[in-house]
Every structure is written in structure tokens, then in C-alpha cells.
Design a binder for these strands. Sequence first.
DNA 1: GTAGGATCTCCAGCGACTAGAGGTTCAAGG
DNA 2: CCTTGAACCTCTAGTCGCTGGAGATCCTAC
Lengths: 136, 136
Amino acid sequence: MLSIGDLSRRTGVKVPTIRYYEQIGLIEAQGRTSGNQRRFGLAGLERLEFIRHARDLGLPLDAIRTLLSLNETGAQCDATHAIASTHLADVRSRISRLQRLEAELSRITRACDPDGTGPCGILEALGDHGRCHGTH
Amino acid sequence: MLSIGDLSRRTGVKVPTIRYYEQIGLIEAQGRTSGNQRRFGLAGLERLEFIRHARDLGLPLDAIRTLLSLNETGAQCDATHAIASTHLADVRSRISRLQRLEAELSRITRACDPDGTGPCGILEALGDHGRCHGTH
DNA sequence: GTAGGATCTCCAGCGACTAGAGGTTCAAGG
DNA sequence: CCTTGAACCTCTAGTCGCTGGAGATCCTAC
């Protein structure tokens, strides 16, 4: 029987976050002590580790909720694969967007000449989208 | 004199968003009609274009607020440069984090064998962080 | 004069937590 | 047995950057 603090230490998920997960129905305590404190079993620990790992991989809680129920109802690989690859595509598009952004930002940042006498190049560049190369 | 809708069409910033920006003190209408509708001038248009561009580059509104005031008080290049390069560093770290994530996710996604008879590899991989390569 | 699109204000919600107030319970030491 | 103090409880509100809806008013063209 694990207290919420034990669970937190074992999984690295913060105590208020665990309570939050319970509130939105992602996990459930096995029961409560006579003094109303949550107690978790091994199943709860594993479930939270699953959630933690999926969160680390950037999956939204809603997708995790679906994955958990797939896990219970006997894994349907198709659905699982769909969620994972959708997320993967999402991550990839975020990467490429960020890379375009990085290019533009570093170009703009270089436009600043701290020793010069004119107005700051960064502020000018921000005011004028027309000078940008490509889209962002 | 531009109505809020004109401003929206010219900048691509949605009407409710413009109102939100006014609410948090980022922009200000030049005045109101007798019927209480906002009217903006050229200064407002340029200011909103600046905000739009900075937002597109991923800068948080707080940083934009600072940049705008720097722009007014006669550009201090140092401060401007600091904000931009802090943001650039942030973007770069997000990129590398996402790339690590991408690697892990595509590894996990490949673990799924839809035709197999065993349990879904993706779900197993999610349940067991120990199998991951590197950190995420 | 009227129709209907644009505008107004105010409030609530998103995702995924995080922080704080104010109170109770549990475990260890004396 | 009693006390201390860390850990726990509930509830509410705040974060960021919008977005959507309700219900009312305004503006413009016909």
C-alpha cells in the first residue's frame, strides 16, 4: 500500500499532479485510510508509470486516456499505432516549424549591431515582415 | 480610421485576439465612435503588425511588451539583443528535445506489429521506460 | 424604415498543471 | 500517552494565449 507521496517518489510525478490525474479520471486510488488518505496498489503504480512515460513522450492526456483503455480491452494494434503515428507526425511538423523559426530568428538576431549608431536592427526586422526569407 | 474588422483583415490577427490585446494593454484604440466602436490609426496598425510578426516568431507576449517599450524609449540594442537571443536559445533547446523525442517515438512506433499475435509492442514500450535509449 | 452584418461587453473554457489557504492525519520520539 | 511536524486533505484560483458563445447594440446599404 503506497501513500500518494510514495507514489510520487517512485514515479517522479508530483503529488498535486497525481491528485489532478485522479480528478480527471485517469487513475484511481485503491482505497482510503480511515483518515481519508489515498492508498495505491501495484496496479496504480504501473498505470502512473505508463502515463508518466507517455507524457514524457509528449502525448496529450486525452490520447493517453485512449491508450489506457485500449490496454485494458485487449490491445488493438491498429488504433494504438494510429495514435502513436499521428503524434509522431505532429512532433515532426513541430520540429520543422521550429527549424524555420530558428533560421529566421538567428538572421534577425544577427541584424543587431550594438556598437552602431543607427536604430536597433532587431526591432526594425520585427516591425517589417517583408524582409523575412520564406515563411514562418 | 480603421474599424477592428479592417485591422483584422490587414494584419491577419483575429478580432477577438485584437480585443484581447487591448484588454491586456498591448495596444490601444485611437478612440471610439459615438456608438462605442473602436477606431484605429496607422500607429495601431504598425504596432499590431509588429506584435503579429513577433508572435509568429514564437515570442511570448511578455517579451513583446518589453520590446514595444524598448522601441518607444529609443532602442537599447543590448536589451533587445538579450531578449532575442534568449528566445533563440529556447527555440534551439526545444528543437533538440523534440528530436530526441522523435527518435524515441519512431522506435516505439516500429515496435508495433499489427499482424502479430502477441500484445501490442507500442503499449508494452509505453509501460516500460527501462527499454528506452537515452533520455527524454 | 428595415435587414443583416459588424460590433459591443461579459463570461467560460481549453491543456496540463501549479500554488496557496486553511484544516486534518500519521508516524516517530520523549 | 502526548506532542511535534511532515505529510496529507479539499477547494479555489492562477498560468498562457487565445477562442467561443450569449445577448445586446450599431452601422451601412437598399
